[in-house]
Amino acid sequence: RKEMTAACTPRRRIINLTSVLSLQEEINEQGHEVLREMLHNHSFVGCVNPQWALAQHQTKLYLLNTTKLSEELFYQILIYDFANFGVLRLSEPAPLFDLAMLALDSPESGWTEEDGPKEGLAEYIVEFLKKKAEMLADYFSLEIDEEGNLIGLPLLIDNYVPPLEGLPIFILRLATEVNWDEEKECFESLSKECAMFYSIRKQYISEESTLSGQQSEVPGSIPNSWKWTVEHIVYKALRSHILPPKHFTEDGNILQLANLPDLYKVFERC
Rank of each mutant, 00 (worst) to 15 (best):
R1A: 09
R1M: 14
K2R: 10
K2C: 12
T5F: 14
T5E: 11
A6C: 14
A6F: 15
A7L: 12
C8P: 11
C8K: 10
P10E: 11
P10N: 12
R12I: 13
R12W: 14
I14C: 08
N16Q: 06
L17N: 03
T18Y: 15
S19W: 14
S19C: 05
V20S: 15
V20K: 09
L21H: 12
Q24S: 13
E25W: 15
E25C: 12
N28V: 08
E29D: 09
Q30I: 08
H32E: 05
E33M: 13
V34G: 12
E37F: 14
E37A: 09
E37I: 12
L39Y: 05
H40F: 11
H40Y: 13
N41R: 10
N41L: 07
S43L: 10
S43V: 09
S43M: 10
S43G: 09
G46V: 03
G46S: 02
C47H: 04
C47V: 05
V48E: 13
P50M: 04
Q51S: 04
W52V: 04
W52K: 03
W52I: 05
A53E: 00
A53K: 00
L54S: 09
A55Q: 02
Q56K: 02
Q56P: 00
H57K: 11
Q58C: 11
T59C: 10
K60T: 07
L61P: 02
Y62L: 14
L63H: 11
T66R: 00
K68P: 10
E72Q: 03
E72M: 07
Y75P: 00
Q76E: 13
I79A: 08
I79P: 00
A83T: 11
A83W: 10
R89I: 14
L90F: 12
S91P: 02
S91C: 10
E92C: 08
P93R: 04
P93V: 10
A94L: 05
A94N: 02
P95M: 04
P95Q: 07
P95L: 03
P95N: 07
P95Y: 04
D98S: 05
D98T: 08
L99N: 03
L99C: 05
M101E: 05
L102N: 03
A103P: 00
L104W: 02
D105Q: 06
S106I: 02
S106K: 02
E108T: 04
W111Y: 03
W111D: 04
E113I: 04
G116P: 15
G116N: 09
P117K: 02
G120S: 04
L121K: 01
A122Q: 01
E123S: 03
E123D: 07
E123F: 15
I125D: 01
I125V: 14
V126A: 08
E127L: 13
L129W: 02
K130D: 15
K130C: 14
K130F: 15
K131Q: 13
K132W: 15
E134D: 03
E134H: 03
L136H: 00
Y139A: 05
Y139F: 05
F140N: 01
S141N: 10
D145M: 01
E147D: 09
G148K: 02
I151D: 11
I151A: 08
G152W: 01
G152V: 01
G152L: 00
P154R: 00
P154Y: 00
L155V: 05
L155P: 01
L155A: 06
I157E: 05
I157L: 08
N159Q: 06
V161Q: 06
V161T: 06
P162Q: 00
P162D: 00
P163R: 06
E165V: 05
E165H: 04
G166L: 07
G166H: 13
P168D: 15
P168C: 10
I169R: 03
F170K: 00
F170P: 00
F170H: 02
I171D: 00
L174Y: 00
A175S: 07
T176R: 01
T176Y: 01
T176N: 01
E177S: 11
E182T: 06
E183S: 04
E183R: 03
K184L: 07
E185S: 04
S189F: 06
L190N: 00
L190Q: 00
S191R: 14
K192L: 10
K192W: 09
C194D: 00
C194P: 00
M196V: 03
M196W: 05
Y198R: 00
Y198P: 00
Q203A: 08
Q203W: 11
Y204A: 10
T210N: 08
T210M: 06
T210S: 05
T210F: 04
S212V: 11
S212N: 10
G213S: 07
Q214K: 09
Q214Y: 07
E217L: 08
G220I: 12
G220Y: 11
G220Q: 10
S221E: 11
S221V: 09
S221Q: 05
P223V: 06
P223E: 11
S225A: 10
W226Y: 06
W226E: 04
W226P: 06
T229R: 05
T229Q: 05
V230R: 04
E231C: 14
K236C: 14
A237K: 07
L238R: 01
S240H: 11
L243Y: 08
L243D: 13
P244C: 11
F248S: 12
F248L: 06
T249L: 09
E250S: 09
E250F: 15
E250G: 11
D251A: 06
G252E: 10
G252N: 06
G252T: 08
G252P: 02
I254A: 12
L255C: 05
Q256G: 09
L260Q: 04
L260K: 06
P261F: 14
P261V: 12
P261D: 05
D262C: 06
Y264K: 04
Y264H: 04
K265P: 10
K265N: 07
V266N: 15
R269N: 14
R269K: 05
R269T: 07
R269P: 14
